[in-house]
Design a protein around this nucleic acid. Structure first.
Lengths: 350, 350
DNA sequence: ATCAGTTTTTGAATCGATCCAAAATTTATT
DNA sequence: AATAAATTTTGGATCGATTCAAAAACTGAT
């Protein structure tokens, strides 16, 4: 019936017998157009199957996309970003602010050399789990607002992060307060290679804790342990990629009768609890476990896992606010909170 | 140093002493430009702080956004879409295909009257959990490819869905095969109001199972039960909103000594198991529970929940493929699979 | 040095709207 | 009816690139 190809506003205007400007107003500023004329244009649009002003053209004029981009860390694709629980909570926080601002959320994978950031159709960016500040460069060049999460980019850039060292301190201090003195640490390996075991008695290179934020956690453990004269160097550490599910077993093989496990994530903590159960250990009676990041899995694990809540959703909300309402660059450092559940108990008296 | 405002390609061209066309070629078709000239243009771009061709302008000419939109069901915001496990698995499937096609994923909330779909900057749409076919209208008008998930839009539209009736059948048949004859059903309420209990002995209106897809599950239950001469009408049903966590208790209050619970989701199944534990019932010894949707929570619940896997990720992948490679409209109906875990056991002999 | 053949570069048209000053029309006032 | 004031409508400039036919510059062969 109507024209074969996608109708343009100009055709609608012609069909309605008005100028292009008026037709545009019908869609962009309906109140500026006389009711009768507006109805005529709308009718013409309906007849021609006009879908409304082309967003691309409108964008070029107005410069507003109405969308916020989350850059998924390089090692994540879009897929992993969605499936990782704590990243997802973080995105949930961002999404809340998007909802409030009626904006879409764009997930942008950032494989090396893709210029995905340079060409993404968004009004601003959020960089999650940045490994190097250079990734924000395309956003800066485009003069778009952006915020960086869980990384210290210095004071000139919007950023939010958790005080991970304080979080590590809280985790270890909690166990110390329960009387624990024999620990083992489940740590992160950045690359996807097999788990590594570090026996007690070696100097601990901070790099045995993956990303900068994890290294901070490790320092926090050290702070708390130092208060009871225990050196991090004397604690067995297993370092494993987050996706490595054999690591819990390696850790328990080498935990030297530890009564408490410090773990850098909730999933690792849960894996340790499961492995403990297999070995006939009762958590928390025989073994206490503390994890990081209060993801839903931690609340429904058996037993529910005591964690340091690193406020992922809050980080997302704050980062998104920074981008939606840009001002002079701010740095927010959030306080982690110990979330007491049932995976920790006083040290067993033998 | 360089100009205050965002530099345009024209300025770069002027600075490099070449025409606009040549400058454009440097970015869009570098091989068409002599090396020496290209270097000059690139240098000028660097000096001026040019971020590369404006995506909006490029889009207007080329018409390709390189992004796929997922329309979050009306009652979900962007937020809920991210936090709901099975929707997330579905998005994960979509995301895989996006990753493979180097495209961004846009999450589009669709509050009533927002025209978010009409104005979203995407190359195509995926509609998840559609309630009424009219929501796809803006996509059709825009002549963009789209696919509909878990809803039957007829043969003229791309769609994927699970054979939910068959899934319901498999769930109930599994319990029947284990010898169970006394059931109770945990069903879905579409609106967010308080849970409703339907005693045995009434005619069951299919609407007591929320969305069309859930009504299909209910029919499937009926099919299997009919094979052992049990009528759905004689089974107690509790109907509750997915987020209602008091419903499990209501169900167990009225389950008339049921030995098996049919549940329309995994989270509800888990809630039932937790409530059962509180009441001193052992799952699966005293009570068997089957859920729907194989979400990660089902694998780590205690005990791990037997579910009907409704292939959420696969649905996402197929829908995304349909949009990325449009052809004549297809309808895919997937077969659900019983995923046996530890929440079901033979009926207790008393 | 000339001519045909190639490779590069140019300049104008185009994508599809929005916006604004000026023109046209309508309404109000005397 | 004439004029001032208010409301609508118009036409053209603009957003920032890409594209393509035509012009220019370069090659190599004679």
């Amino acid at each position: 019936m109507a024209g074969r190809n996608k109708p343009r506003l100009a055709e609608v205007a012609a069909a309605a017998g008005v100028s292009l400007g008026t037709a545009s107003n019908v869609f962009a500023h309906p109140l500026k157009v006389r009711t009768e004329v507006r109805a005529r244009v709308e009718a013409a649009a309906r007849v021609l199957g006009y879908a409304g002003p082309d967003p691309a053209a409108r964008l070029l004029r107005n410069g507003k996309v109405n969308a916020l981009g989350i850059v998924a860390p390089m090692r994540f694709g879009v897929t992993d970003a969605l499936l990782n629980s704590s990243f997802r909570l973080f995105m949930g926080g961002v999404a809340e602010v998007c909802d409030a601002n009626n904006a879409n959320l764009v997930i942008i994978p950032d494989p090396f050399g893709s210029d995905a950031i340079g060409s993404a159709l968004v009004d601003g960016f959020i960089f999650g789990q940045v490994e190097h500040i250079s990734v924000v460069e395309p956003a800066r060049l485009r003069r778009l607002p952006y915020a960086v999460v869980d990384f210290d980019p210095g004071p000139d850039v919007n950023s939010v992060r958790i005080d991970a060292r304080r979080g590590g301190y809280a985790a270890a201090r909690h166990l110390v307060d329960l009387g624990h003195r024999r620990f083992a640490i489940m740590s992160f390996l950045r690359e996807l290679s097999s788990a590594r075991y570090y026996p007690p008695g070696e100097i601990r290179d901070p790099a045995i804790a993956g990303m900068p934020i994890d290294q901070e956690k490790m320092k926090g453990y050290g702070d708390a342990l130092a208060e009871v004269r225990i050196s991090l160097d004397d604690i067995p550490v297993v370092q494993a990629h987050p996706s490595d599910n054999t690591a819990a077993s390696l850790l328990l093989d080498h935990s030297f009768g530890a009564t408490a496990i410090l773990s850098m994530s909730a999933m690792q903590g849960i894996a340790v609890m499961n492995e403990a159960r297999i070995r006939g250990l009762d958590v928390p009676r025989d073994l206490s476990v503390v994890g990081f990041n209060d993801i839903p899995e931690a609340a429904i694990s058996v037993p529910p896992l005591t964690v340091i809540d690193s406020a992922n959703a809050t980080k997302g909300r704050i980062a998104a606010e920074m981008v939606f309402h840009p001002s002079s660059p701010r740095t927010e450092i959030l306080a982690p909170v110990l979330k007491l559940r049932s995976s920790t108990a006083p040290v067993p008296c033998d």
